[in-house]
Computed example of a mutant assay.
Amino acid sequence: MKIMASIGLIIVSISIFGYLYRAIKGPSMADRVVALDAIGIALMAVIALFSIILNTPHFISILMLLAVLSFLGTISFAKFMDKGEIIEYERDDI
């Protein structure tokens, strides 16, 4: 089982470099956002595979925290691409 997890860890690590290339050289902002989201998902896979290799369940809480932060980052980028700002302030024009 640990050999398969090690092989998976190598494959996921190689894919992170591909995503990093797309995040840097992406032709559009949407491609960069998708690449950053994929990097977050790949990092979650790396943490899960390390948890399998080391036979410990303690990395799962870190995995959940990274999932929430990755989700919030993707939502923030999407809102910035849509409206040009992340936090909208309501102004009363009197």
Results as ranks from 00 to 15, higher is better:
residue 2 K to D: 04
residue 2 K to W: 02
residue 2 K to T: 06
residue 3 I to D: 10
residue 4 M to A: 13
residue 4 M to V: 11
residue 4 M to E: 14
residue 5 A to M: 10
residue 8 G to V: 11
residue 12 V to W: 01
residue 12 V to S: 15
residue 13 S to L: 06
residue 14 I to K: 05
residue 14 I to A: 13
residue 14 I to Y: 02
residue 16 I to K: 01
residue 17 F to H: 00
residue 19 Y to V: 03
residue 20 L to Q: 00
residue 20 L to P: 00
residue 20 L to I: 05
residue 21 Y to M: 05
residue 21 Y to Q: 04
residue 24 I to E: 02
residue 25 K to M: 07
residue 25 K to N: 09
residue 27 P to V: 05
residue 28 S to G: 11
residue 29 M to W: 08
residue 30 A to T: 11
residue 30 A to S: 10
residue 31 D to G: 03
residue 32 R to L: 08
residue 36 L to C: 13
residue 36 L to N: 11
residue 38 A to R: 05
residue 39 I to F: 02
residue 40 G to N: 09
residue 41 I to H: 00
residue 42 A to E: 11
residue 45 A to L: 11
residue 45 A to T: 12
residue 46 V to E: 13
residue 46 V to S: 12
residue 47 I to T: 14
residue 47 I to P: 06
residue 48 A to N: 07
residue 51 S to G: 11
residue 52 I to R: 08
residue 53 I to H: 01
residue 54 L to I: 14
residue 57 P to A: 14
residue 57 P to V: 13
residue 59 F to R: 10
residue 59 F to G: 15
residue 60 I to W: 09
residue 61 S to W: 06
residue 62 I to D: 04
residue 64 M to Q: 00
residue 64 M to V: 07
residue 65 L to G: 05
residue 66 L to E: 02
residue 66 L to H: 02
residue 67 A to S: 06
residue 68 V to W: 04
residue 72 L to N: 03
residue 75 I to K: 05
residue 75 I to A: 14
residue 77 F to T: 03
residue 80 F to H: 10
residue 81 M to T: 08
residue 81 M to K: 07
residue 82 D to N: 12
residue 84 G to H: 08
residue 84 G to L: 08
residue 86 I to Q: 06
residue 89 Y to K: 08
residue 90 E to T: 13
residue 90 E to D: 13
residue 91 R to I: 14
residue 92 D to R: 11
residue 93 D to K: 14
